[in-house]
Design a protein around this nucleic acid. Structure first.
Lengths: 262, 262
DNA sequence: TAGTGGTCTAGACCACCAT
DNA sequence: TGGTGGTCTAGACCACTAT
């Protein structure tokens, strides 16, 4: 087949061509957020390609996070939702005491979201290697308590956290029991027993969600997760809690303010 | 067509079935990193499906970031490369002076990477709204200087940064000229002129790369970017520089340690 | 009920890789 | 040169949505 063009640049893939044109229409604002894209069949007609090919173009945009596809309805330019930004002050004792809220609820409420937290199972387990290393704990069986928490905004799950506390610390306390003492966070409790969050370390990475994570957090295609490995450090420089958070990156972000040591 | 199974669970999509089995083989370690997956044609034979279908299964894994596909060769389980973690101390004056290195070079070198930075164009421009807001600058034309920097590790681009400095500050200084004064970073220069990084704010999000970013940073499918909106704050609480970084999330991460205010 | 996306088939040609 | 991925076609059936 010959290339019919007379004025433009060289031809490439039909699939890419279609995706490129839709993409730039989106980026230029010609297709504003919420707009419905032409249907696969319609694109196939316009570009004189098989429907497969047109659909593949839309799948590309979906993987790039540009569109949401609704079965039976159409593909729509994704609306950029404002992020809930978790601040670095979220471990502040004072904030907690004044509001009685856990960090997540605090930030979410401040930003106008209907937020709640649900506790999951609490188990005595063997810590993952990276957690064990940061806790300075044996990589041995049952050396830590693992607590699971799910965070919701407007009734959608947006974050999960797995908290690991050395058994030596948690032993015989309510920290080993589910449901407790979540309302104001476990930190209020730990504080009363000599563990104050003096410093924190947060190691941040991003990746595509695992299949199971995508299902559990209802993460749409084209949306990554932010993984935060958080370590709480006591005034005597001992780490006493490590939490691995997974955040839906389309609704959650982080916001740190910190002073720079010389 | 009937479902031939006798012992297992219910059937679903061939495409999903194939992806599920490969995925769990990868997650179980039966297919270790670097292993070559069966070819599309081979999978098609094994599962008695069309080649399209088998290929689609592999594309799913690719979009999840689990495999790297090499044209003409095969699909391989992705090796997890260790991250270069940029620390919160990277704006430390002392570190800079002792080593003479810019933050990125410092961290990368410390972690055994062959690193270098390339400066891009320097222009006087109108700042993006979010940058203008953080700089406390007019959203007007030509109110800031924009500097562009590309960061390489082992000769691969892994990070871009766009730095915005108010024209009022940069006017008549080497900050308006390209190539300068990069070797030790612009911060050394600013410091000598009354702008010391006393506090920083970093707003973090993650998303799939834009098409152009993916091309420029050579980001493979299934890999997101981390976007950091960095603000440098002077001792008098004035912001004097905003930089937007884009990091390839498969090789770059962040590592903050900070004290918690009461 | 008409239109839309989801998926699959069977066959084809091209580009790239490795031997 | 044979195997592999990349892409495309033309047609089909199903599941879901909207009216």
């Amino acid at each position: 087949m010959t290339t019919p063009l007379g004025g433009g640049d060289g031809r490439q893939n039909p699939r890419q061509t279609i995706a490129d044109e839709l993409r730039s229409a989106i980026e230029q604002g010609e297709l504003p957020p919420g707009t419905k894209l032409p249907s696969g069949r319609e694109l196939a007609r316009r570009y004189t390609v098989a429907r497969n090919t047109a659909d593949d173009a839309i799948k590309l945009l979906q993987a790039e996070g540009l569109v949401d596809v609704r079965h039976g309805s159409g593909a729509y330019v994704r609306r950029r939702r404002p992020l809930v930004r978790l601040g670095s002050n979220r471990y502040s004792q004072r904030l907690r005491e004044e509001t009685g809220l856990s960090p997540f609820l605090l930030e979410a409420a401040r930003q106008g979201w209907q937020a709640h937290v649900e506790g999951g199972p609490v188990q005595r387990v063997q810590p993952p290697p990276d957690v064990a290393e940061r806790l300075g704990v044996d990589d041995a069986a049952r050396s830590v308590i693992r607590r699971e928490n799910w965070y919701f905004a407007d009734n959608e799950p947006v974050q999960v956290g797995y908290t690991y506390i050395p058994w030596a610390i948690a032993k015989g306390t309510p920290l080993t029991k589910p449901g407790e003492p979540m309302p104001t966070g476990i930190y209020a409790y730990l504080e009363d027993h000599g563990y104050t969050v003096t410093r924190i370390r947060e190691e941040i990475s991003a990746r595509m969600p695992r299949h199971s994570e995508a299902a559990a957090l209802r993460i749409p295609p084209g949306v990554p997760v932010i993984e935060v490995l958080h370590t709480s450090i006591n005034s005597d420089d001992t780490p006493f809690d490590v939490t691995r958070f997974m955040l839906r990156a389309d609704v959650m972000g982080l916001d740190y303010t910190m002073s720079v040591e010389e």
